[in-house]
């Protein structure tokens, strides 16, 4: 699928004015866990890391394509599917859309650029706010949303929770979805679409931000709301959202943010309890609390 998307972007840039990513519902429900479980069992972590890197590269190609890339979403867009949606130039949601980053359910964190996108949103909000602190958005929105695997249960909720952006389209009738998405893509192209430039000065919450997320986690752990391993996964998520263990308020590049989330993802994959969660999900369809 990653190859297909990369090829589609390349062809669109070469031959077309725009690209619409669409799939009849569900839009996409994330990575193939069976393949991930098999690779883990074979301890092919280098291969897994290369796959994640390619996933990130695909997200970045979608985001920085020379032509507008519009995601037309209906039904579930979860995990990696959600991350592709987040990286599109524009989104057209059917009202009945279920969007979320649900990786913590299997002991993982988003690593296809999802954490990076939330860190970027925090940075942009901080730029507009007095004090320039990205942490309030991280703690109040991103961390809680991803740590609790919250799924937006409507198109509007998806935008409000940060999976889309103000200005995205919502269509009430799903049969209009593709039509609106194509029209939107064409309009963007005809308006002289310019791909966003790569961000290189992203202010992150850093070490203090991670510790403050851990403060929330340790209270939930001690209160018996989460397990020791949830604390471990939550800390990895905090690192990815806060730009890693760097100084608070430091500026980092997009590449660094992707490196951090990929590193944390692979480290979690090496953990026995994450592997147990993946297998349990495959066998039962339900998350394992271990």
């Amino acid at each position: 699928m990653l190859d297909g998307l990369l090829e589609a972007v390349a062809r669109a840039e070469r031959d077309l004015d725009a690209l619409v990513i669409w799939h009849e519902p569900p839009f996409a429900v994330g990575a193939n866990l069976k393949q991930v479980a098999e690779a883990c069992a074979a301890k092919q972590f280098d291969r897994l890391e290369r796959t994640v890197a390619k996933f990130q590269q695909t997200s970045m190609r979608i985001k920085h394509a020379a032509v507008p890339v519009v995601a037309a979403v209906e039904g579930m867009a979860l995990g990696g599917g959600c991350e592709f949606v987040m990286h599109a130039s524009h989104r057209v949601f059917a009202q009945e859309s279920y969007v979320g980053l649900v990786e913590v359910g299997v002991g993982l964190i988003p690593a296809g650029g999802g954490c990076k996108e939330f860190a970027l949103q925090a940075h942009r909000m901080a730029q507009r706010a007095a004090g320039g602190d990205p942490f309030p958005f991280i703690i109040q929105t991103a961390f809680q949303t991803i740590a609790q695997a919250e799924v937006a249960k409507s198109a509007l909720a998806a935008i409000q929770m940060g999976f889309g952006q103000q200005g995205d389209d919502i269509v009430m009738h799903p049969r209009e979805l593709l039509y609106v998405a194509i029209r939107r893509a064409r309009a963007l192209a005809e308006a002289g679409y310019q791909a966003p430039l790569p961000e290189r000065q992203i202010v992150v919450a850093g070490r203090n931000g991670i510790a403050t997320c851990q403060m929330l986690l340790v209270n939930m752990l001690e209160g018996g709301f989460i397990s020791e391993y949830d604390f471990r996964v939550g800390t990895a998520l905090a690192r990815a959202l806060c730009g890693g263990e760097v100084e608070t308020g430091m500026s980092v590049s997009t590449e660094w943010l992707l490196d951090v989330e990929r590193h944390e993802f692979v480290e979690l994959l090496k953990e026995e309890k994450t592997q147990q969660r993946i297998v349990h999900m495959l066998e039962t369809g339900k998350p394992l609390r271990n």
């Binding site: 942490f135 309030p136 203090n208 403060m215 340790v218």
Partner: peptide, 18 residues
Amino acid sequence: KVSINPAVFAKEENYAIA
């Protein structure tokens, strides 16, 4: 603005500060 010192989580005996 809540901001806790990362050193709190460097040692388990300090967790209670949080």
